[in-house]
């Protein structure tokens, strides 16, 4: 697995409902994982909330992925357990798999949303 660039993970598969935005869901999950940090190691205690904030900002259409990439480097392999590593890998796969989604959000658009509005955002909250 290591040779293929893979690692053991949490083993959780979360199917997305049709129209759900990958970026938005990842922001929610990273926020949850940041809350779940045991808080024993400084880089995880400080880094995961910062990472969650950076992804949340990408979801809301501001901020740049550079900050997220910087935080990925600052939390990876800098804890006693693999919680920060796994969280960083999730964000890394988001940035690899959907490298342009946050740019769309920056324009007030979303690849996954329909003309009726994304299930993530009530129509009243959608930006134009």
């Amino acid at each position: 697995m290591t040779e293929a660039g893979l690692a053991l993970g949490a083993g959780i598969v979360l199917p997305l409902v049709k129209g759900a935005c990958t970026l938005h869901r990842t922001a929610q999950i990273v926020g949850h994982l940041a809350d779940e940090s045991a808080g024993r190691c400084g880089p995880c205690l400080n880094g995961l909330p910062a990472l969650a904030k950076s992804i949340n900002e990408l979801d809301r259409g501001w901020g740049s992925s550079t900050r997220a990439e910087q935080l990925i480097r600052l939390v990876t392999k800098r804890g006693a357990c693999a919680h920060p590593d796994g969280t960083a890998r999730l964000v890394l796969s988001l940035l690899k798999g959907w490298p342009r989604e946050h740019l769309a959000h920056g324009l007030g658009e979303c690849t996954f949303s329909t003309s009726m509005g994304s299930p993530n955002w009530p129509a009243s909250e959608m930006v134009s």
């Binding site: 024993r40 190691c41 400084g42 880089p43 995880c44 800098r78 804890g79 006693a80």
Partner: peptide, 9 residues
């Protein structure tokens, strides 16, 4: 090597 739970920065 840093023992992360011990390190207080």
């Amino acid at each position: 090597r840093v023992d992360w739970p011990l390190c207080c920065g």
